[in-house]
Design a protein around this nucleic acid. Structure first.
Length: 574
RNA sequence: CGGUGAUUAGCGCAGACUGGUAGCGCAUCUCGUUCGGGACGAGGGGGUCGUAGGUUCAAAUCCUAUAUCACCGACCA
């Protein structure tokens, strides 16, 4: 491709709304342009990268034995009502009516449509297992799209679905997909970790996320330095500390703590550390017939954080977990949030494993402006349950007993689920087994956020000059920069010759033939992130040389003019 | 959905308080000089000032409504 016939669309200045490096660079490099909130056009440079990413995904899915299909983006509401998700999915599902008042939705995911397909097409257990996939735009009406394509509303996703006679077969395909995902992200040049994950609103019972490591990530993952253990912090189990409680001191007493609403304020007033103060949170339990909720108190060590995912899974608690509002709390306890505690709380009390080891601690008195000190479990509070309620922290022991946990931020670029029979049962996707019985199929589903993965690659591979693409995703493998070819026939001829040679060899090469000053061309080449930069100018040609520079390291090399094409091909691994 | 802020040329911004012929930098076009890391000079083109009402002799500017966007939070495969 010649630059003069291409749409480079690079920006010299930083777009003001883009705070994240990948977002900023995708705009500056002329990859994407925003059309509406969370909705983007992909310009030629972006599209070339996207096409290469799609190709990697497609090759690895095909290699893993999945079959490519295409399902509609517009889906009848009927199917969503069948699975029960039409009401459950919430406003993220974009609903609309056609001219005949028929109800439809834009597909945010395709479990319903694929299960409908399966129940029509799969008639015999001999057709199983079956794994199908598609690469298609999804639409989710996110509350707050941000960071460019990292969290867009319309985005490209590879979604795969598998169908099985039994759980054992599902496990095999799950592992095949897991392995395929590892190959995909490795080929994309991502530094990533597969981690144990929550299943969220997709449902199911076993799941891994593939997290690209990046400080800009929205997720936090916990990993062990002594084993392969890694999990999303939503899932990572916090073990009970192995210390014993201290013996209780004198009976508890009430202390005034006026104006103290947070653990830190109360601790400071009482002359204690935050970890000696109990954090008491009131959440909603089950909904009662009159629409109100029973209230449950969750107690944590004052310096630790509640994990809402874990709490939401406890029997009898609202799921997803809802906090009680201030009015409910006042009505039930007689005090405002900030002065709550387990003593005198007339409801279910669940305490965290670490809080269970506290002794002679302080907690709210259920009376505004007062805390209690020297409180002890069992002696002062008898009726409580112990559960894992908190987020793990850096330095916690690994749940598998090997090593210590550390925290890192990650970008979720893929997730694999074992769905079980959730959709097949709801929608009657059954096959006949060898005993002649009709049984619902086991299902798995597997997603890759293709556009998000590209943003993650940039997040991991850039410097202050621009993007540094791995060869596999680069919009062009090589760029030829000719220094003033209009002034030097020798430069012009050398550049044209090399361009033609590389084209003939099938290399994806950009020949910057614009009549620009060299600095402009160097800056664009580095901003766009082309891995191999070739400069042809009189200065080099006088020595019979063509100059080569590797974008990633900045390492330079002079190539003899007549061997240049061959050396470059070798660098590309040909 | 709450909080904050923004909307003036393709991009980044000034002008608004104090109403009176719409400006700057970058980009773009033309000409010239330059020419190995985002050149310089001269000249040109491009904007119903988000939209709709209102006040006024006169509105980018004041008032009202509304839309869109961004950031923070809550939310979320």
């Amino acid at each position: 491709m010649r630059s003069s016939q291409y749409l480079l669309s690079t920006l010299k200045e930083n777009p003001v709304e883009a705070s994240l490096a990948s977002h900023r660079l995708m705009l500056r490099a002329g990859m994407i342009r925003q059309v509406a909130s969370g909705i983007y056009t992909w310009l030629p440079t972006g599209m070339k990268v996207l096409a290469k990413a799609i190709n990697i995904v497609r090759e690895e899915m095909n290699r893993a034995g999945a079959l490519e299909i295409a399902m509609p983006m517009v889906q009848p509401a009927e199917l969503w009502k069948e699975s029960g998700r039409y009401t459950k999915y919430g406003p993220e599902l974009c609903r609309f009516k056609d001219r005949k008042e028929g109800e439809f939705a834009l597909g945010p995911t395709h479990e319903e449509v694929v299960t409908d397909m399966a129940r029509r097409e799969i008639k015999s257990s001999r057709q199983l297992p079956l794994c199908v996939y598609q690469i298609q735009n999804k639409f989710r009406d996110e509350i707050r799209p941000r960071f460019g394509v990292m969290r867009g509303r319309e985005f490209l996703m590879k979604d795969a679905y598998s169908f099985h006679m039994d759980h054992q077969s599902l496990e095999k395909t799950y592992q095949d997909m897991y392995d395929a995902y590892s190959r995909v992200f490795t080929r994309m040049g991502l530094e990533f970790r597969p981690v144990e994950a929550d299943t969220g609103s997709i449902g199911g019972n076993h799941s891994h996320e593939f997290q690209a490591l990046a400080d800009a990530g929205e997720d936090i993952i916990a990993w062990s330095d002594g084993s392969m253990y890694a999990a999303n912090i939503e899932m990572a189990e916090a073990l009970a500390p192995s210390v014993a409680r201290e013996t209780p001191k004198e009976a508890y007493t009430k202390e005034p703590t006026p104006g103290c609403h947070t653990v830190d304020e109360a601790a400071a007033k009482l002359g204690l550390e935050a970890k000696q103060v109990l954090k008491s949170l009131v959440v909603r339990g089950e909904e009662k017939e009159d629409g109100t909720h029973s209230l449950v108190m969750l107690c944590l060590c004052g310096n630790q954080e509640l994990n809402e995912i874990k709490a939401g899974k406890i029997q009898g608690l609202s799921s997803p977990l809802e906090f009680a509002d201030e009015e409910e709390i006042r009505k039930f306890t007689g005090a405002n949030p900030g002065s709550l505690g387990p003593i005198g709380f007339k409801g279910r009390i669940i305490i965290d494993r670490t809080a269970d080891k506290m002794s002679n601690f302080a907690c709210g008195a259920n009376e505004d402006g007062f805390h209690l000190i020297n409180v002890n479990w069992d002696r002062d509070i008898q009726d409580y349950e112990v559960a894992d309620l908190r987020n793990v922290e850096d330095g916690d022991p690994s749940p598998d007993g090997k090593g210590t946990l550390h925290l890192r931020r990650g970008i979720e670029v893929g997730q694999v689920f074992m769905l079980g029979k959730k959709y097949s049962e709801a929608m009657g996707a059954t096959v006949t087994d060898e005993k002649g019985q009709s049984v619902a199929m086991e299902m798995g589903c597997y997603g890759i956020g293709v556009t998000r993965a590209i943003a993650a690659v940039i997040e991991q591979n850039h410097d202050d000059r621009g993007i540094i693409w791995p060869d596999a995703l680069a919009p062009f493998q090589v760029v030829i920069i000719a220094i003033k070819p209009t002034k030097s026939a020798r430069v012009h001829d050398a550049a044209e010759n090399l361009y033609k040679e590389l084209l003939q060899a099938g290399v994806d090469v950009l020949y910057d033939d614009r009549d620009e000053r060299p600095g402009v061309m160097f800056a664009d080449a580095e901003l766009i992130g082309i891995p191999h930069i070739v400069t042809i100018g009189d200065k080099g040609l006088e020595q019979g040389c063509i100059e080569y520079k590797l974008r990633k390291t900045g390492e330079r090399e002079n190539l003899p003019e007549n061997e240049a094409a061959a050396v470059i091909l070798k660098k590309l691994g040909r």
